[in-house]
Design a protein around this nucleic acid. Sequence first.
RNA 1: UGAGGAGGCCAGGCGGCCGUCGGUCCGCCGUAGCGACGGCGAAAGCCGUUGCGAAGGAGGACGGGAGGAAAGUCCGGGCUCCGCAGGGCAGGGUGCCGGGUAAUUCCCGGUGGGGGCGACCCCGAGGACAGUGCCACAGAAAACACACCGCCCGCCGUAGCCAUGGCGCAAGCCAUGGCGAAGGCAGGUAAGGGUGAAACGGCGAGGUAAGAGCUCACCGCGCGCCGGGCGACCGGCGCGGCACGGCAAACCCCACCCGGAGCAAGACCGAAUAGGAGGGCGACUCCGCGGCAAUCUCGCGGGGGAAGGGCGGCCCGCCCGGGGCCCUCGGGUCAAGGUCGCUCAAGGCUCGCGGCAACGCGCGCCGUAGAGAAAUGGCCGUCGCCCUGCCCUGAAAUACGGGCGGGGGACAGAACCCGGCUUACGGCCUCCUCAAAGU
RNA 2: GCGGGCGUAAUUCAGGGGUAGAAUGCAAGCUUCCCAAGCUUGACGUCGCCGGUUCGAAUCCGGUCGCCCGCU
Length: 141
Amino acid sequence: MTLAAGKGAPREDFRFPSEERLRTDREFREVVRKGERTSTPHFNVYRDFLGGDGRKVGISVGKRAGQAVVRNRVKRVLREFYRFHKCAFPSGSRTAITVKKAPPRPGLDAVTEELLPAIRRRWGPKEGSSRCGQAISSSEP
RNA sequence: UGAGGAGGCCAGGCGGCCGUCGGUCCGCCGUAGCGACGGCGAAAGCCGUUGCGAAGGAGGACGGGAGGAAAGUCCGGGCUCCGCAGGGCAGGGUGCCGGGUAAUUCCCGGUGGGGGCGACCCCGAGGACAGUGCCACAGAAAACACACCGCCCGCCGUAGCCAUGGCGCAAGCCAUGGCGAAGGCAGGUAAGGGUGAAACGGCGAGGUAAGAGCUCACCGCGCGCCGGGCGACCGGCGCGGCACGGCAAACCCCACCCGGAGCAAGACCGAAUAGGAGGGCGACUCCGCGGCAAUCUCGCGGGGGAAGGGCGGCCCGCCCGGGGCCCUCGGGUCAAGGUCGCUCAAGGCUCGCGGCAACGCGCGCCGUAGAGAAAUGGCCGUCGCCCUGCCCUGAAAUACGGGCGGGGGACAGAACCCGGCUUACGGCCUCCUCAAAGU
RNA sequence: GCGGGCGUAAUUCAGGGGUAGAAUGCAAGCUUCCCAAGCUUGACGUCGCCGGUUCGAAUCCGGUCGCCCGCU
């Protein structure tokens, strides 16, 4: 297990390092223009498939979503959503999430409830990703 | 208790798991490179082993990570570049006085106004005899002191009235004289004149034909002198006798201040301060040298200078000016790249001294986020706070007690850095004022 | 980060200290057999909001909110 940490991503990976992010405007444009699309009341999700091992996610929150505090909060919640549900983002894919309108209560539960079924419905549950978003908040007293 | 005023403080705490940004350290892998030894070779060098090993890679440990407003970008500075000669104009800003500061439109302390019963609060508060302009409607008149209405004196004098006389039987008529509404003429006057935001000092008394600072007291205003204060200004005395309406957040005048842009500044690395095609523009003149018969022509060097260009608002002025300049078209690389700037700051806190204070000085301690699709978060538990529902005890829980449950936790996110201002917003504490009631 | 502009009737805009206006639209009437056009009326307004200057503010000054541009 410790050896596996070298190259291939381990199963229990809840990290979100900067290599897994879309970092340039060009990448965003490619994904948004060429990728497939689905949407929910508050978000648009674009995705294309390049193959390979890597997997990239980008989050874009425009000014329409609200002031800086609101935008930051939405971005953080979406990052957490990715960390806990990486199985919904298969390797070789690039995904861009944009925010149309800020959710009124941007809690992790509400965002998951809105986004996860939409992604599953659009791209389908990939094989072997059935056990995925298990609770991480196990802190029994 | 209620209604207010001033000042200060905090920005939920603790724990667990997962994550993120950058820092320090630890070993691990290991490239370039450097060294040692050995081998080959004539030499340059090559090969092998081994040591160190920048950068880089994957990982671990430790400790750090938003605000009072980080916001608006309204001021002021630091810093950086623009080629800072110099002068002027334009433009912008400020505007009681003194102080503080790197600086300010900020802060502190005063002065003078204004508001409030009060604690206290607010004020863009220079100049309207430098000039120009505006003051709608109403009103006699709106800035010049007059005209208008009115009031008063005088004169003329109509209607009318009175007196005397005459005529007449009477009603009445006539004459003379006096008074004389209205009216006219010539003056006096500015008290009064539905208005208006504002009316040529106010109010009272005297005075007068009527009136008037005409005179007087008080108040206001102006001027002078004296005293106090660094000063704004204040106080006193005297004089003048009202002349001097308001608006400068109207133009403007006066005094003082301001070069422009901004970390997307700017520097370095790397590519490339590169280079191609076409077109257009670009007075001249003087001096020296060379070949020469030669002052023309040619070549070289230098000076002046027009057009043009530069000096990041404009002008003078300065600089460039056969060196180039301008326009059009097209090709290549590709980068919205990396590194630095980048966080120690006119920094914060304690104490002492000076100062009414803002603040300054000295000693000591602490040293505090640095991203770049952009970190500082998510979930859970618990405590504390607020709101709310139900239940218990109880005479009563709408007695401020106890228990169980649900919900909430403001305004808001650093982007070069500071000092202010303004705006948004939850709570706590202290002092003070007023009112009512009680002691 | 820096710089600039605009908020006035339902709509598009004037007005830059003295009663808030025009065009289109809306409603009513006239005209017509009916409609359109035309003509005559009418309703239309917190002048984005809050303060200040002034006798008086849509206008001048400050603050604030919203919207739209430009600069690498």
